[in-house]
């Protein structure tokens, strides 16, 4: 589904990703862990096409297509979704208008008619229940005045609406209390399907108790330095990252 080969990327001339290789197959959940500044968020931003990051080398194919050639909105239409670490507040743009535009643009891309108003609102209701989101929130402007937890819940709500084939969750657990974490994780798990994959970026084992990964990678200094099964997360939780650095001889 997603094949990353020797990906190098920089921001403001500074190289952050220094040769990432990753292969995500349909139905798999990958976790990416790593110390601060390793390049985890850079990797997710590069994948969704953030204009601030420049890819200097390497390739990314998504379902056989060259992902790096696509505009950000096309990547979205092709099934890529990023749950942002810091969701943006957009004053004045209502959740309803925002989601309607997003859904209908996606449908347009797939040569489908826009969703009728009634059907759209029904879909909103259904998916809201998914993440136990208050109907009041969906009547407000996008993320405006939302608490940290509400913002993250809203990300998962949008994911449920757009039904991506590959979701990247960038520190979706940060700033969440235990109840919110469970709700968000449940939301993610309910979206699991044989043809859908996820990349979960996190610092902590905690989220991985809820969202069970198949494979865990450690990203360090712009490279994936270790790949193993779920047991790796426990080891990291216990020992931190220093032993990996030592293994690397640093």
């Amino acid at each position: 589904m997603l094949v990353i080969k020797d990906l190098h990327a920089s921001i403001n001339g500074k190289e952050i990703l220094k040769g990432i290789n990753l292969n995500v197959k349909p139905g798999e959940v990958h976790a990416i862990m790593g110390p601060n500044g390793a390049g985890k968020s850079t990797m997710s931003n590069v994948l969704v096409g953030h204009p601030k990051y420049v890819v200097t080398k390497g390739s990314v194919t998504f379902n056989g297509k060259n992902l790096l050639d696509m505009a950000p909105e096309v990547r979205s239409h092709e099934g890529l979704f990023l749950s942002f670490q810091y969701p943006v507040e957009i004053p004045g743009v209502s959740m309803v208008n925002f989601m309607r535009s997003a859904i209908n643009e996606q449908r347009k891309y797939h040569n489908l008619e826009p969703l009728a108003a009634g059907k759209f609102l029904k879909l909103m209701r259904e998916k809201r229940a998914f993440v136990e989101m208050d109907s009041k929130l969906s009547n407000r402007a996008v993320n405006e005045g939302f608490s940290g937890g509400e913002k993250k819940r809203n990300e998962i709500f949008q994911m449920a609406m757009l039904e991506p084939t590959l979701a990247i969750l960038d520190e979706t657990d940060s700033g969440l209390d235990i109840d919110a974490l469970r709700i968000v994780a449940d939301g993610v798990n309910k979206l699991k399907a044989p043809d859908r994959s996820a990349i979960v970026i996190t610092h902590y084992q905690r989220l991985l108790d809820y969202i069970k990964p198949d494979i865990i990678h450690v990203l360090y200094d712009g490279r994936i330095v270790k790949t193993a099964g779920p047991e790796l997360a426990l080891e990291l939780e216990e020992k931190g990252y220093d032993w990996i650095k030592e293994e690397l001889g640093e």
């Binding site: 909105e73 979205s76 239409h77 997003a102 891309y109 757009l162």
Partner: peptide, 9 residues
């Protein structure tokens, strides 16, 4: 960018 990521050109 946030909106573009959600598929809005």
């Amino acid at each position: 960018f946030y909106m573009m990521q959600r598929g809005i050109p």
